[in-house]
């Protein structure tokens, strides 16, 4: 694959979309204001009119808008997902990002000319899976699950005829995406069908002596003494006891930053970099987009000064290259 790597940035609101475009995003991804997408948070996402305005704003500046419709329609409730696909086509979205086989089947049949990307929520991490989505539904791009190292991504790209997009920055799932029922187990609300993980509606902070205890549903996920800044109790980033020892068993409260790996990812044949964070504000979108725009544009790739520029806005203030380095496992 040739040409400059594409920068795909998040937008939870119309101002964030405009900020991303202004800061140099090649494409912006967004979702409708319902459970058809994996960031179904209160006060977030786009009405149909807002998406129309966002598409117009981006297209006027030569940029693209992708619409994420990446949750799984439950049995007997296909209509809202079908409507989302129909409206994405009608409003001129440049691509839809889908995960469900049934919805891909519908989109292929009803809107054959609407470009289809495969969401990370579909968990396609091998050539057989990617080839299947390509042949069956004409999927043009696959967002890779965060389970592969850079050499594995290079091998995968050599084996498939589809563009790949990888996460470069932001909140990071530790579990294979689209295959995690932890949140549903504790709260009854799952990423796959409700578009939420560890939802705020089920979070409580309780003062207990010197500590602030963070609970999700009926379970304590973490506790913060005076020495630690209280964080959000995302289940897989909590502290638990195993083998008589308390630790961040699954993952530390870190976020992904693959900026230093940008040249390696480009050499591995990756077509696009994705920034996580549709739930984050306009300032975050502006700052991260600008930093990655500069890094991509710098002929030699990223310098450490760009990575440093983002340290302040990462989750918990700390970052990791995650699964891109094999030692993470």
């Amino acid at each position: 694959m040739s040409g400059k790597i594409e920068l795909v940035c998040p937008a939870g609101t119309l101002p964030a979309l405009k900020a991303a475009v202004d800061a140099g995003a090649d494409a912006v991804y967004a979702g409708f204001r319902d459970r058809t997408n994996a960031r179904n948070f209160p006060g977030l996402n786009f009405s149909r009119d807002e998406l129309a305005e966002g598409v117009e704003y981006a297209h006027a500046r030569g940029r693209k808008v992708f619409l994420a419709i990446n949750t799984y329609p439950p049995a007997g409730e296909f209509a809202p997902w079908r409507a989302a696909v129909d409206d994405a086509a009608r409003l001129g979205a440049d691509a839809v990002i889908l995960a469900d086989i049934g919805l891909l089947d519908y989109c292929t049949e009803a809107h054959p000319r609407l470009r289809r990307h495969l969401s990370v929520q579909a968990s396609a991490a091998n050539p057989a899976a990617i080839g299947f989505f390509h042949r069956a539904f004409g999927v043009r791009r696959v967002v890779l699950p965060r389970v592969l190292s850079v050499p594995e991504i290079a091998a995968l790209n050599a084996a498939v005829d589809v563009e790949t997009e990888v996460f470069a920055f932001g909140g990071m799932c530790v579990m294979a995406e689209g295959r995690c029922a932890l949140s549903g187990y504790v709260t009854g609300h799952s990423p796959n069908t409700d578009g939420v993980c560890s939802p705020a509606s089920h979070v409580r902070y309780i003062e207990r002596g010197e500590e602030l205890v963070a609970r999700l549903g009926d379970f304590t996920i973490d506790a913060f003494g005076r020495d630690r800044q209280a964080g959000y109790p995302t289940l897989c980033k909590g502290r638990f006891a195993a083998l008589g020892r308390v630790s961040h068993l699954f993952e530390d409260p870190v976020s992904l930053n693959a900026m230093e790996l940008l040249p390696a990812l480009a050499a591995a044949g990756v077509k696009a970099l994705k920034i996580e964070g549709r739930q984050r504000g306009r300032a975050y979108v502006q700052q991260v987009t600008s930093a990655f725009r500069a890094a991509i544009d710098a002929a030699a790739g990223a310098g450490p000064e760009h990575a440093h520029a983002l340290a302040g806005i990462a989750e918990g203030g700390r970052t990791t290259a995650g699964a891109y380095r094999k030692t993470w496992r």
Binding site: V147, A181, L182, R245, S247, L249, A323, R329
Partner: peptide
């Protein structure tokens, strides 16, 4: 109930 699968081994990590 299997709730999640990962590339990372939590047994090894623990």
């Amino acid at each position: 109930i299997p709730l999640a699968i990962s590339a990372r081994c939590y047994h090894a990590r623990a």
